[in-house]
């Protein structure tokens, strides 16, 4: 039962980037368990290893050593094909710079994901969830930054993923738009039971999570548990 309740469990994860003759130790042995449906914020200075961990958890990158499990699957043992399958089935990504395809409309950007998902929402429904039902035929260049990020959120949640991974989702947004995006994420976590991992520099956001991982120098320096989660609308920056 214990295993079933854990979405991810990582053991002694290390990541070394070699560029030329220099080695960068991005992760120096990280251990953690993340429960299903948990909401988590990763805090820490630049280069402390947050993004590296997020990428490894999302199957975009592999650790140099250590093991990582998702459910009963050992992610660190999968080849590229199976990692892609894992991402396709379970993970929704949201980035700071949206990463929308400029040649596709809002709806088509969402369809990119629903085309290959096994039990997706209707793209229109996903856009309605983020309040963009009336802008579905607009191209990214015709949308504001906040709207683009909401399309990215709609794209991420449309396939009803079990995990949402967000790398600085509000980094490029003003406070009001940022709150709106966070509310959508929180709603997915609360109503659909989606496990939520958010990287942020904004300590205020930490208060909306169940737990906060504080990163320093490639290690989780401290784990903080919030006894009381606040709603995104109470956050401001």
């Amino acid at each position: 039962m214990q295993l079933e309740r854990n979405a991810f469990s990582g053991h002694d994860l290390r990541k070394i980037y070699v560029t030329g003759e220099t080695e960068v130790h991005a992760l120096r042995g990280v251990d953690f368990d993340i429960k299903k449906g948990e909401s988590l914020v990763l805090l820490g200075p630049s280069g402390s290893g947050k993004s590296t961990l997020l990428n490894i958890v999302g199957g975009l990158d592999r650790p140099t050593s250590g093991t990582l499990h998702y459910d009963e699957i050992e992610l660190t043992a999968l080849d590229d094909r199976d990692l892609t399958r894992f991402r396709r089935a379970n993970i929704g990504f949201i980035f700071q710079f949206y990463n929308l395809i400029p040649s596709l409309t809002a709806e088509e950007n969402v369809r990119l994901v629903t085309d290959i998902a096994s039990n997706p929402m209707d793209p229109g429904e996903a856009l309605a969830l983020v309040g963009l039902a009336d802008r579905k035929h607009h191209y990214p260049a015709q949308l504001s930054g906040g709207e683009q990020q909401r399309v990215a959120v709609a794209r991420a949640i449309a396939k009803q993923p079990s995990v949402l991974l967000c790398d600085e989702p509000t980094g490029a947004l003003d406070s009001r738009t940022g709150v709106r995006v966070l509310e959508t994420l929180e709603q997915a976590n609360r109503e659909l039971g989606t496990t939520l991992l958010i990287i942020t520099h904004n300590a205020g956001i930490a208060a909306m999570a169940d737990r906060v991982f504080h990163f320093l120098d490639g290690r989780i320096a401290r784990i903080e548990t919030n006894t009381h989660r606040i709603s995104p609308s109470e956050i401001s920056w």
Binding site: L60, T84, V113
Partner: peptide
């Protein structure tokens, strides 16, 4: 981006 979204 497509790779990240789960395209092979």
């Amino acid at each position: 981006t497509l790779r990240v979204l789960g395209y092979h």
